[in-house]
């Protein structure tokens, strides 16, 4: 395949193409042929997935059925809660320091509980900036932040892609976008 911008040879003879026939000049056979292909598609199984209403196509399985996301996939973050339902995060800011995309923003505050000194007042992740590298969960000394297989949730605005603490705490990996049952 030649590059599309390769210029035609300067010395190409003008009448290089064979002259068009009358039917070719009318374009009608080609149009009918094209419409035929389109009509055939109406009766074949649908390839398009109505994401995000239904889950993604499983490319790895080369299967038209809707597959599940690999459990090791690094998707959206969650903030893990402890047994008492509080965030495990102690706002040490190590994930913020480790983040190569600088997408984490935390403001610590003294914790109201006796068993720990600090907690995050603000915990925001800009999912648009995030490159899903997982360094934050690697840096975390408390296992408080994890990346789940949950896929990118589409939004209609950019501000919605900045997740705050409440959203990260409630970001349930089980609540994956609905999966269409496998055939």
């Amino acid at each position: 395949m030649s590059a599309p911008h390769t210029p035609a040879p300067q010395d190409a003879p003008e009448g290089d193409h064979p002259p068009l026939t009358a039917s070719e000049k009318s374009y009608l056979p080609s149009i009918v042929k094209g419409i035929g292909i389109t009509l055939q598609r109406f009766f074949k199984p649908n390839f398009t997935v109505q994401y995000p209403e239904v889950g993604p196509y499983d490319y790895a399985a080369q299967d038209r059925a809707i597959g599940e996301v690999n459990p090791r996939h690094r998707g959206e973050h969650i903030l893990v809660k402890d047994e008492q339902g509080r965030e495990k995060c102690v706002a040490c800011l190590l994930c913020m320091a480790a983040c190569p995309a600088l997408c984490i923003h935390i403001e610590p505050e003294p914790a109201p509980w006796d068993d720990r000194e600090r907690r995050p007042k603000v915990f925001e992740i800009d999912m648009l900036r995030c490159i899903y590298c997982g360094y934050c969960e690697e840096a975390c000394p408390c296992d408080a932040i994890r990346l789940t297989p949950k896929l990118y949730t589409p939004t209609t605005s950019r501000t919605e892609r900045v997740y705050d603490k409440e959203r990260l705490l409630e970001n349930n990996p089980e609540a994956q976008v609905p999966q269409r049952p496998r055939k």
Binding site: L102, H105, E124, D126, R129, S157, R158, T159, V162, D164
Partner: peptide, 21 residues
């Protein structure tokens, strides 16, 4: 870069949200 342009006070300061919504 670290202190100035990215670590902002709130999400609204990230710059990606300008003119949005």
């Amino acid at each position: 870069q670290v202190r100035g342009s990215v670590h902002r006070k709130s999400a609204a300061g990230y710059g990606t949200t300008r003119g949005d919504v």
